[in-house]
């Protein structure tokens, strides 16, 4: 997939296409708490001086699980059926000094997932929308060789 095709599943999370794709967070100007997604109130100090920041694209796996059954639809909008569903990984990725982001993982083998392993942000086609555009979602992938 080229970076020039598709649409973001939610523009408040990330822009697509983009020359430097990243997730968007917000940071409190008063107490420096970081949130994902962005929000306009601070969950730590209760203030309202939140500014938008780009989140790091690399981090470490804080915890994980593997989704073993097809989620109910709605709300799930994935393309799988009961017959072809394959379990997928889900985890929290700790972005150093920022926040832990909940995300789907590209890896779903429990033997290959380990708390503390380095991960990086990737983007992938999730579904096609009604107009035939690729709908792009984010995930985190193990960093090869680390």
């Amino acid at each position: 997939m080229t970076k020039n095709s598709g649409v973001s599943i939610d523009k408040t999370l990330f822009d697509w296409p983009s020359d430097s794709p990243h997730l968007k967070g917000s940071k409190c100007s008063d107490c420096e708490a970081v949130t994902f997604p962005t929000q306009d109130g601070c969950p730590r100090c209760c203030g309202t001086n939140m500014e938008k920041i780009p989140l790091n694209t690399k981090g470490t796996l804080w915890s994980w699980t593997v989704q073993g059954f097809l989620p109910k639809s709605p709300p799930y909008a994935g393309p799988e059926t009961l017959e072809n569903f394959k379990p997928y990984g889900v985890g929290y990725i700790e972005l150093d000094g920022q926040v832990r982001v909940e995300s789907r993982l590209t890896e779903s083998d429990p033997e290959k997932l380990e708390i503390g392993m380095p991960m990086e942000l990737v983007f992938h086609k999730f579904i096609e929308d009604e107009e035939g555009n690729d709908v792009i979602a984010f995930a985190f992938a193990p960093i090869d060789g680390e």
């Binding site: 599943i9 939610d10 999370l13 989704q67 989620p71 709605p74 709300p75 799930y76 909008a77 994935g78 997928y88 889900v90 909940e102 995300s103 789907r104 999730f126 979602a137």
Partner: peptide, 9 residues
């Protein structure tokens, strides 16, 4: 997006 992508469980 949270429910659509299979995270809200």
């Amino acid at each position: 997006w949270y429910g659509k992508t299979g995270l809200a469980l």
